[in-house]
Each structure stands twice: as structure tokens, then as C-alpha cells.
Computed example of a mutant assay.
Amino acid sequence: MKPLRISLVGAESTGKTWLTQALAGVLRTRGQGVRTVDEVLRHWCDRSGRTPLRHEQMAIAQQQADAAHPLSQPAPDTWLLSDTTPLMTAVYSHLLFDDESLYPMALAHQALYDITLVMGLDLPWVADGLQRDGPQVRGSVDTLVRQALEHSGMPYRVVYGQGPQRLNNALLALGLEGEDASAQHIREQGQFAINQGRSVWQCNDCSDPACEHKLFTRLVKQRSAD
């Protein structure tokens, strides 16, 4: 499989940084070259001792984009993993300041990635000083992230699970072999049971890029309408 440019986005305290480093570690042990991009906002808050104001959002988003370059022409044998993107700055600017002006720039940058992984909300919220507002904002942030991606026509894959399970689900969503050899078999068996109507669908047990449950549900609705 050729190296990919991967972005990890999602609400606060959903494991973006942990998963970025975990994926990088797995890829390196498999002999792949990897470049990771850190979250600019975290360093900005640490240096400034506060969160940014409305007029400072665009500069932070641009710094995040610049940190990923030369993203448009990466080394041909190197995977790129970006722990957040300007899209998250745009979402928070929208949520906190009712400012939607960052979306064009953020989505133009987002389009440079091969795959976007959206972090599921199944991890417990953990305080992190200035960096996090509280668990009450996670649902709103998650909704805005998905809306932005969907409205722009950008596909994404949601990753759920705790610890090693989250890592396995991310690897499978990327089309890679999981670290746990049984992970893919368990997921495939679960999907078969779901599609045969023998078990209840649970999105937190899946990160299937094709979303067989969605396809199956759409087919059932179409047949019912005929």
C-alpha cells in the first residue's frame, strides 16, 4: 500500500494525539517512513498562557496548515499523520465566536489529505488546563466537524474503541492489517450478523469506511418504497 496523507480530527479529549503517535509507531515498526504534525494550538496556549481571541484564529489555522507542508508534495515513501488540521480551528471559531470565515481556507487544506479520521466520542473527557472547555462542547464540535466534511463532499471514517481496540479500528479503516490478528475477523463476523438481521447495530464497534449498515438500511428503505 502506498503511503497516505492522513488527518485526525475531532472534539477535545477524543484521542487524536494518542492515536497519531500510536499509528506512527505501528507504521515505523512495519518499516514505513512517517512524518507527524503536532497541534499548533496546544503550543500556542502553552506559550501565551491563554486561549486565542477571535482575531487570532486565522493565524493559528494558517500555522497549522504551514506545519503540514510540503503536504501537497510529500516524500513518495513517507506517510504523513497530522494531529488535527485547520478545520478544527475553523470549527471552534464558529462555535465560540460565531465566525464561519475560516471554513474556506480550512476545507481547501483538508482536501489535500487522502483520508480523514474523525474521532468518536466514546472516550471519557479528561481536563487539560487551558486546552479544553468541558465535556458539554464535544457533541456540538463533533456535529460541526461532520457537517463541514459532508457539505464539502469529503469522505471520512469514524474511529471508535478504547486503547488497542481504537488503534486496531483505525488501522482497519486505513485498509491496513490490525495489530490484533483477530480484530478484522471479529469485525467482519459482527457485520455479517448485522446485515443478516441477527444482532443490533452498534457504531462504536465499527469503523468500516464503506459503512455496510448504512448501505443495507438504504436498500431496505428503497425496497419498502417500491
Score class of each variant (00 low, 15 high):
Leu130Asp: 02
Arg146Gln: 13
Gly129Glu: 05
Pro155Trp: 08
Arg157Gln: 14
Val158Trp: 02
Gln136His: 14
Leu130Val: 09
Val141Phe: 07
Met154Leu: 14
Asn169Asp: 03
Tyr113Met: 10
Arg166Ile: 01
Ala148Ser: 14
Ser101Pro: 01
Arg138Asp: 07
Thr116Asn: 13
Arg138Asn: 01
Trp125Arg: 03
Glu100Thr: 14
Thr143Lys: 11
Pro164Cys: 01
Val126His: 14
Leu107Tyr: 02
Asp98Tyr: 01
Gln131Val: 09
Leu121His: 06
Leu121Met: 12
Tyr156Gln: 05
Leu117Ala: 04
Tyr156Phe: 15
Gly139Asp: 11
Leu171Gln: 04
Arg157Trp: 13
Leu117Trp: 05
Val118Gln: 07
Val159Met: 02
Leu121Ala: 07
Ile115Arg: 15
Pro135Glu: 12
Gly163Trp: 00
Tyr156Arg: 07
Tyr160Pro: 01
Asp98Arg: 11
Gly161Glu: 00
Gly134Arg: 08
Ala111Gly: 13
Gln110Tyr: 05
Tyr160Arg: 00
Asp142Lys: 06
Arg146Leu: 07
Gln136Ala: 15
Pro155Asp: 09
Ala106Gly: 00
Gly161Val: 02
Arg166Tyr: 03
Glu150Gly: 08
Leu96Gly: 01
Gln131Lys: 13
Gln131Arg: 15
Met154Tyr: 12
Leu112Thr: 12
Pro155Lys: 08
Met154Thr: 14
Arg166Val: 04
Tyr103Gly: 00
Gly161Gln: 03
Gly134Lys: 10
Asp98Gly: 04
Leu96Lys: 08
Leu144Lys: 08
Ala108Phe: 00
Leu172Ile: 15
Ala148Glu: 00
Val159Ile: 15
Leu96Arg: 04
Gly161Ser: 08
Ala148Thr: 04
Leu102Thr: 02
Leu130Pro: 03
Gly153Asp: 12
Gln131His: 14
Val137Lys: 01
Ser101Phe: 02
Met119Leu: 15
Gly129His: 09
Gly120Tyr: 04
Tyr156Gly: 01
Asp98Cys: 05
Asn169Glu: 00
Met105Ile: 00
Pro164Glu: 12
Val118Tyr: 00
Gln147Ser: 10
Met119Asp: 05
Val158Lys: 13
Val126Phe: 09
Trp125Asp: 01
Pro135Met: 04
Thr116Asp: 09
Val141Cys: 02
Phe97Thr: 05
Ser101Met: 03
Ala170His: 03
Pro124Ile: 03
Leu96Met: 10
Ala170Leu: 05
Val158Glu: 15
Ala106Leu: 05
Gly153Glu: 10
Asp114Gly: 11
Pro104His: 07
Val158Leu: 15
Val137Phe: 10
Gln162Trp: 10
His109Ala: 01
